[in-house]
Structures are given as structure tokens and as C-alpha cells.
Amino acid sequence: MIKKLFEIMVLSCLFIGSVKAEDRNLYQLAAGDVISIKVYGEENLTIEEQKIDNREVIDYPYLGVIAIGGKTLKQIQSEITLGLKGDYLVNPKVNVAIVRYRNVYINGLVNKPGGYEYEPGLTVQKAISLAGGVMSKYRRSARAYRTKSSESDQYANLSADQLALEFKKDTETEAELYQVIHPGDTIHVVASFW
């Protein structure tokens, strides 16, 4: 029995590890992410920390400007490897990694609204907790809505009342508390009308 439980735990850990590795391979970089680029044996080509700015490009030695936005770590790694191979290095060993993800934002009826550092596995409930929880007088009526980073511009200049009206139109956008969120996402906590 104990052996069987151990086997199940090991298989679960392997599955979870592979899912996280897969997520990292699919994760698309954007402004606010911080990456590192290491070329083994080549200190002058190694960048310990590079924050991706709003232009979503970096200036890399010998290769010039490289567009980063919307690409995965593997794509950037391949692009740098191919660019360095031949003229600069015979067989470059390049590793591109995330140092820090871009923030998630929690706005509205929480005690400490603002941007918070993303961590893999972050849920709506955990994000609201990071922001000090829902204000006490709204705990029973508050609703949480998640917008993806690509949708954030359409809600940027709306007041809390306007946001609540906007979300009321589409009741399917209400976020589940255990829903996993992604870097750049915004959680809007608004008072419910119903």
C-alpha cells in the first residue's frame, strides 16, 4: 500500500513538473518580464538581467536589436544561437531564462490595489490576498473579474462604477476564485448589483 502511494506521488510530481516545463515553453515574453541570456564560456555575451521595456526589443552584442515581444524563451534562444553560430562562435551554447515575470494587477475594492509580482500557479484568490483582501464593507457583494494583458487597454480609463456596469453586461467573465491567472493579467474587484 505504501509503495503504491509513493508511486502515485512520484508520478504526480513528474506530471506537474512536465506541465510547468510545458507552460514555460509556451510562455510568450512581453514588456515587464526580466530575462537572462547566458552563452557558456563567453562572459561578454552573457546578460544577467534584462528587463523588457515597452518597445519589447533588446540590443544584443554582435547581433543588434532583437524583437522579444510575443516570442517564447526557446524561440529567443534559437534566434541568438543561429545569429552567433558561424561568424562569431563555432557551436554556441545559449540559455535564455525568466528571472522575473511581469506583474499582475489587482484593482478596485481591495485594501492595497496595485501591481504584484507574478508567481507560477497564482490564482484569483491568492492575488486578492496579496492586495490585502476585499474591503470589509464589500466582502459579501464583491465580484472579481479577470482581464488578460491584451485586453487591459479597453478598461484602463473606466471608474469602478463604469467597470461594474461593463462587467454586468457579460456575466460569464466573472472569475472563479481558484482560476489560475497569468503575468500581465488584471483582477478587477467590483461591487455587485445583484
Rank of each mutant, 00 (worst) to 15 (best):
A30Y: 06
L73I: 00
L82W: 10
T81P: 01
I35P: 04
G86V: 01
Y27I: 00
I35C: 03
K38V: 01
L89P: 03
A67T: 14
L73K: 09
Y27S: 04
D59W: 07
Q75E: 12
L26K: 15
T46N: 10
S36M: 01
D23N: 11
I76Q: 04
Q77R: 07
D23S: 02
E49P: 15
T81Y: 00
E56F: 00
D23F: 07
K85G: 08
Q75L: 02
Q50K: 14
V34Q: 14
E56T: 09
L45D: 00
Y60F: 09
T72L: 11
I37S: 03
D23R: 11
T72R: 05
I80M: 02
P61F: 09
G32C: 06
L29S: 07
V65L: 14
T81H: 04
L82Q: 15
E49H: 11
K38M: 06
D33L: 07
V57K: 15
T81E: 06
N25E: 12
Y88T: 01
R24F: 07
L73C: 03
G86I: 07
E79Q: 13
I47H: 07
D59C: 10
E42C: 03
S18I: 06
Q50R: 08
G64N: 09
K20Y: 09
G86L: 01
V39E: 05
Q28P: 13
Q28T: 15
G64K: 04
G64I: 02
A30R: 13
I68A: 08
V34K: 10
L73Y: 02
V57D: 10
G69A: 06
I58C: 09
K71F: 06
V57A: 07
K85Y: 12
V39D: 03
E22L: 07
K51A: 06
Y60E: 01
K85E: 14
K71Q: 04
L29G: 03
I80N: 00
G83V: 02
A31I: 03
K38D: 01
L82K: 12
Q50E: 11
I35Q: 01
R24N: 05
G86C: 05
N44P: 15
E43G: 02
V57C: 11
I35E: 01
N25W: 10
K20M: 06
G17D: 09
L45F: 06
G32Y: 03
L45C: 09
I47N: 14
I66L: 14
L89D: 04
S78D: 13
T81W: 01
K20E: 10
A31Y: 04
L89M: 08
I66T: 14
N44H: 13
G83I: 05
Q75D: 13
Y62M: 15
I58L: 08
S78L: 10
Y62W: 15
K85A: 12
P61G: 10
E79F: 04
Y40M: 11
A21L: 13
K85S: 11
T72E: 04
R55S: 11
Y60M: 00
G69V: 07
N44F: 04
I68N: 09
V19S: 06
N54W: 02
